[in-house]
Amino acid sequence: MKHIAPIRFGRVGVFVNGKITPMADQMLILTQTIRPKWLDRLVIALLAAAACVAILVTAGIVLSLVFETLQFFNKVPVMDFLFGLDWSPQTAIRADQVGAGGSFGAIPLINGTFLISAIAMAVATPLGLTSAVYLSEYATKRTRDWIKPTLEILAGIPTVVYGFFAALTVAPFIRMTGGQFGLEIASESALAAGIVMGIMILPLISSLSGDVINAVPQSLRDASYGLGATHSETIRRVVLPAALPGIAGSLLLAASRAIGETMIVLMAAGMAAKLTANPLEAVTTITVQIVALLTGDQEFDSAKTLSAFALGLLLFALTLCLNVIALGIVRKYREHYD
């Protein structure tokens, strides 16, 4: 038989809340059960297929990156890519040019990526951790209730906005300030990009480590207070050491976010592939180069285009490692205190 219109959840809600449901409704549900089994199976199969999309996406990412990267390594040796100190793919545009192979040494890019991420972490870690500690340990509920969402605004602002701020406000400011002290600062310095990226990942660190700090059992705090420790001694000597694994996990997640960030560095860090540790100089990053290589004219199998996928694979592997480690640490930490 054709099944009868399904009853709405509201009616069962009434039933669940302990009130008497008219008999007619229950009859309806009973008649509904007469419905072909294959239909249920089909629905579940469709749902399972939706869940498998997640696997498909990962597979798609890995396969596309690996496929193009292998083609790239046909043209450029793996070792030259991973350990080369010179990055100048521009020379590979025309085959008849001198040095047509171009140089695809990724080290300067990795160097730039890590330099900017390190600056970002140097800005965000102390600020994020200290605010997290203050918010979860000292702030009254009312203060917390409006400061936390305000800080979370920082997390909701699109990165292109940070990039605009870095390139048009922070970078000129740093350049000008440096100039007053007689410092020569590139207009696209790693420092400007790094500082702004630090602000971007700050709410990530403060909210994740805030959760971790809150998860430290009250009994440990009580033990410390019971011995006569002050609040800050309790935090520094008991709460933070106990939360350390979780905090380390949240820092790793933030670092992975910084490494994979594109827009801020694209707008504020420049294209110069320099091997330097000086934050006042312009550097370039993996993500910036991927964009630079793939926007504009493309031929799909030139070494220049393919190298972008090799960089993408490098980036994917790097962030995946950081994430897996971070999630592992955080999970272990949670189990420890559950």
Partner: peptide, 23 residues
């Protein structure tokens, strides 16, 4: 699947762009 979902959440957005470009 669950591991995949958690890790996808943290994959840099530009990598998704590469996926779109090549696939």
């Amino acid at each position: 699947i669950e591991v995949n979902i958690n890790n996808l959440a943290a994959v840099p957005s530009i990598v998704f762009g590469l996926l779109g470009l090549s696939i």
